[in-house]
Nucleic acid binder design. Structure first.
Lengths: 78, 78
DNA sequence: AGTAATTTGTTCGTATGTATC
DNA sequence: AGATACATACGAACAAATTAC
């Protein structure tokens, strides 16, 4: 089985679209990794890679043990 | 960068030297695969091959999900 | 107040596909 | 053909702080 586009890229594209359309709203939480895992039937590894992509694009930011949220990482946080 | 010596052998040599000099001390942890990946800009595959070499030489031992440590594998481990 | 569930982070093991030397 | 090297993908288990009840 082989696709030109890696799974994590495909998932990133889907999430990117959900953000674009407002399905995932600003500062709202992106579903937990385990939820996305089940929803898309991919490994957590793949979910994390996808989110990593979005993070690099500044579309989301992640807070350890809290979750990932839509939007750029706030300047001040602790 | 061309060399007759495989990358994993080169990396093994570097780690071997770090052990020899005490940069990596007995029973201390060797950096995680992902860290070495970034530090040396090689694939995880290459890192693992390098460590595999050291393991075969009895210079390090690896514990699943815990890490790789300097020294021969202890007789008793749980 | 206290305990269980949640959630991201970490880490090694394994397998597969592609490309190159 | 075989060894080397990289990228992708899944798995499994534990850590540790936060959140929920």
């Amino acid at each position: 089985m082989y696709s030109d586009v890696p799974l994590y890229e495909q998932l990133a594209a889907i999430l990117r679209e959900r953000i674009r359309t407002g399905d995932l709203k600003h500062l709202h939480r992106v579903p937990p990794e385990t939820t996305l895992e089940q929803e898309f039937e991919v490994s957590r590894d793949t979910v994390r890679r996808a989110i990593q992509q979005l993070r690099e694009e500044g579309l989301v930011f992640t807070v350890r043990r809290r979750g990932t949220f839509v939007g750029p990482r706030p300047a001040a946080e602790r």
